[in-house]
């Protein structure tokens, strides 16, 4: 974790060709102070009752998100909706194993989401590698790269387990503990170092929201 008092120099987006560098943000994310008292409680209630998930299937577990939309499981009754763009969504469901190639997209999508943003990691692979524990191209712990609010175990978890996970996330948000965005900003250097350790060809902006 970064504990240095001196702020490091801004990352220069050096993975990008020079003509594109000016197009992207070059300021590190900052922490946002929550509102005070009952106002924040009200906001948190609204956030928890209106979970828009990013419709981005990052692994085989994404197949379990589809049944949630059907009449049998019907996630809409819990205020859960899929959204196609990271700008509008507030929950990122990591669908199982994340290869390094996918991790690049996960990081970019996560950073493009507007805070407060929440992450549900689904399946054993996101927790400790699962059945891909010895794979050369699959990360073992997603929480080294982006902050995770709650995990759903199983390989695969059933849609019921997913709904239970969403209820758990609601409790976390209502308790005011869903501060992944601030955690990411606070430990930004640590997360970036971890990401760059596994993503060998970093050809994307360093700050891309």
């Amino acid at each position: 974790m970064s504990d240095n008092k001196l702020k490091p120099a801004p990352l220069p987006n050096e993975g990008l060709p020079p003509e594109e560098r000016g197009l992207f943000c070059d300021v590190a994310p900052r922490e946002y102070e929550p509102a005070k008292g009952i106002v924040e409680d009200f906001y948190n209630w609204a956030r928890s009752e209106s979970l828009w998930i990013l419709g981005f299937g990052t692994g085989c577990g994404a197949i379990e998100l589809r049944p949630l939309m059907t009449s049998r499981f019907d996630m809409y009754r819990f205020g859960i909706q899929p959204r196609p763009t990271p700008r509008q969504s507030s929950v990122f469901v990591i669908g199982g194993y994340a290869s390094v190639k996918t991790l690049k997209r996960i990081v970019r999508s996560y950073e493009q989401m507007m805070g407060p943003k929440f992450v549900i990691a689904l399946g054993s692979c996101t927790i400790n590698g699962g059945m891909y524990w010895d794979s050369y191209n699959t990360i073992k712990r997603i929480d080294q790269y982006i902050p995770v609010d709650t995990y759903i175990t199983g390989c695969m978890p059933r849609p019921e387990a997913l709904l239970a996970g969403f209820q758990e996330l609601k409790k976390i948000i209502k308790a005011g503990k869903g501060e992944g965005q601030n955690e990411y900003a606070r430990n930004f250097d640590w997360y970036k170092a971890n990401q760059k350790k596994v993503i060998k060809n970093w050809n994307m902006p360093d700050y891309n929201w």
């Binding site: 009200f42 205020g79 509008q88």
Partner: peptide
């Protein structure tokens, strides 16, 4: 019609509150 329970009638209000309560925007 689709045989679901469906979202609450007041869901649009929650969505608007949530969208407005986002902490940052670009």
């Amino acid at each position: 019609v689709q045989g679901r329970v469906g979202q609450p009638v007041y869901q649009p209000y929650i969505d608007i509150v949530k969208s407005s309560a986002k902490r940052n925007s670009i």
